[in-house]
Design a protein around this nucleic acid. Structure first.
Length: 567
DNA sequence: ATATGCGGGCTAC
DNA sequence: GTAGCCCGCATAT
């Protein structure tokens, strides 16, 4: 592992060093100036030497222009985890780790799975794995493709196209993309365009005993399966497949050794799946074998579809593991919001199901799907084939949303009239919209040292009318997180909102049950960092213990002593 | 195998 | 100069 003083290190090293409080992330002050929020700690800011007054509980699904301060012993923060599929991005600044969102992999036709949910795969972080994830490698049970896949594993040189994007070029389209397990349509990677047309970016920095986090952009796509869910699922899959294959493997050995006198030596009595090569291939798919305990579908068609897809490599959540509390993905032009109910993320049934091996569904690759968890406006393919408004309860066409098929990749979200939305668990309303044309102040990612501001129009502004609901709503932080300390600001939401809202700006957006926040529109002209308006800028953070997205103002809170700068 | 982090290098603006 | 992105490499899981 390469390392250098003041640079980020591997999680393991980070853990050790961070726990020792060695402050290895402390920036080289000669290089990094007081330009960004994450760069708090700069020697020209006396407050930076202070300990953060408050720490946030880890937020697994940060969304919006949010900032958090985690304790350096927060494991998930140490690992820079996120529910979103974030990949490392080189920002040429070893002091700040920058990650960008990969989006989500979905069925191009947005077909509805037997359980009424939809495919939402987590894009592989590794480029190579992602290519393999998206390209055909082992689709179908047929000997040709399966054989090629198997051979590719044996002779990768001879089949370099297998598992690579080149396959998209050299093979017919029917082979080019991995198929949806349900409708056999192509899988589609929906890129994240939530930050001015670019992927949402997350930034991490270790500063003493605090880990600073900042997210920029609003995810304009559904949530993929979370990392923890993916890992749990794959782990369960391995166990299951091992238990499934072992007896047959043993039998194969017996047959090969002539142990079974009743067998003529052919494998006719053995299901095709028992072909070791093919089985390996199928195992790689991460898809369960049909007929396994717990593998069931409400109808035969669904079963057939699944059976046909034993080679599917995607990540599919079993219907049994659907979120008990469906999420509502609220359309917003051009993006949409997802209102996650309390615990909807980390209270995932995985948490409990996987604790008990007996309860592990066998179809462990059924995706984490939520029938209500879709962003209609984000991708045209969905719109072509799906009537969201009629089939997805909870969906309502948003006012002013662009026409179907449009995807706005500009990140310039038009002001849209508020539209009441309903969440049976978390009543929330869209109340306000930014004044059309009112310039908003957006911190612009300057991954190195600078910060600048530019006009920004948030995609929507929301405000939960109940402070109590906001406060008690669950953020998507790990369920094991203890109750958080209470910020005065958090409990004084109206006040915070008032402070946070400039006279010309709307109230900040709040999404209960989520770590999402939208930097409110601020009626400040574009200006450079040094001349920024102290106490004027506001940003929202998710005091995870309360699970809500709370607006903060710079002024008056030690918490904001780190807020004077942005990336 | 995959995730993660680092850093060089390229491109666009 | 900034930011996005690709790539290779190394390490961890």
């Amino acid at each position: 592992m390469k390392s250098a003083p003041g640079k980020l290190h591997s999680p393991a090293n980070q853990n050790l060093r961070a726990q020792r409080g060695s402050g290895i992330w402390i920036l080289d002050m000669e290089v990094v100036l007081s330009a960004t929020w994450l760069l708090a700690g700069e020697n020209d800011n006396p407050r930076c030497s202070e300990e953060p007054a408050h720490f946030d509980h880890f937020c697994e699904w940060p969304d919006g222009y949010v900032r958090f301060i985690y304790r350096s012993d927060e494991k998930k923060a140490q690992r820079h985890l996120s529910g979103w599929a974030m990949r490392n991005t080189n920002n040429h600044n070893g002091h700040i780790l920058k990650k960008s969102c990969l989006g989500v992999v979905v069925c191009a036709r947005a077909c509805m799975l037997p359980d009424g949910s939809r495919l939402q795969l987590r894009p592989a972080i590794c480029d190579k794995a992602r290519l393999k994830q998206q390209s055909e490698r082992a689709r179908g049970c047929g000997p040709l493709v399966g054989g090629l896949a198997a051979m590719s594993s044996l002779f990768p040189v001879n089949f370099p196209f297998l598992g690579s994007g080149l396959l998209l070029i050299f093979l017919p389209s029917g082979f080019a993309e991995k198929a949806c397990p349900n409708c056999h349509s192509a899988l589609e990677l929906i890129p994240c365009r939530g930050h001015s047309g670019y992927p949402v970016t997350n930034f991490w920095r270790l500063e003493g005993n605090a880990i600073f986090f900042q997210a920029k952009g609003v995810h304009d796509h559904p949530r993929p399966e979370s990392k923890s869910e993916t890992e749990a699922r794959r782990s369960a899959l391995k166990r299951q497949m091992a238990s499934f294959y072992q007896p047959q493997k043993k039998r194969i050995r017996e047959l090969e050794a002539g142990v079974n006198p009743n067998n003529s030596g052919h494998f006719n009595s053995i299901p095709p799946l028992e072909n070791p090569e093919e089985f390996d291939m199928i195992t790689d798919t991460g898809f369960p074998a049909p007929g396994q305990p717990g593998f069931s579908f409400p109808n035969s068609d669904a079963y057939k579809a699944t059976c046909d897809l034993t080679t599917f490599q995607g990540d599919i959540m079993p219907p049994l593991q659907k979120h008990p509390k469906p999420r509502i993905y609220l359309p917003r032009p051009p993006c949409s919001y997802e209102l996650a109910g309390p615990g909807s993320t980390n209270s995932s049934p995985y948490a409990t199901l996987y604790k008990d091996s007996s309860s592990i569904p066998t179809d462990t690759d059924w995706v984490h799907l939520n029938a209500l968890h879709y962003n209609v406006n984000s991708y045209s393919n969905f719109e072509r084939s799906f009537d969201f408004t009629s089939k997805q309860h909870g969906w309502k066409p948003a006012l002013g949303k662009p026409g179907l098929g449009e995807r706005t990749d500009h990140g310039q979200f038009p002001a849209v009239a508020a539209r009441p939305c309903y969440n049976p668990e978390l009543p929330c309303r869209y109340l306000t919209s930014p004044p059309p044309g009112a310039p908003a102040l957006q911190t612009v990612i300057t991954t190195t040292t600078k910060v600048s501001y530019q006009a920004y129009q948030p995609p929507a502004l929301k405000y939960c009318d109940s402070v109590r609901e906001v406060s008690l709503s669950s953020c998507n932080y790990a369920s094991e997180n203890p109750p958080m300390s209470i910020y005065p600001e958090a409990l004084d939401l109206p006040a915070a909102v008032t402070r946070a809202t400039s006279p010309a700006g709307p109230v900040p957006l709040k999404i209960p049950g989520d770590c999402r926040a939208i930097r409110p529109t601020l009626a400040f002209p574009q200006e450079s960092a040094p001349s920024r308006t102290d106490g004027a800028e506001t940003w929202e953070a998710c005091p995870s213990g309360l699970g809500s997205t709370i607006s903060y103002s710079d002024a008056g809170s030690p918490f904001f002593s780190y807020d004077n700068d942005d990336f």
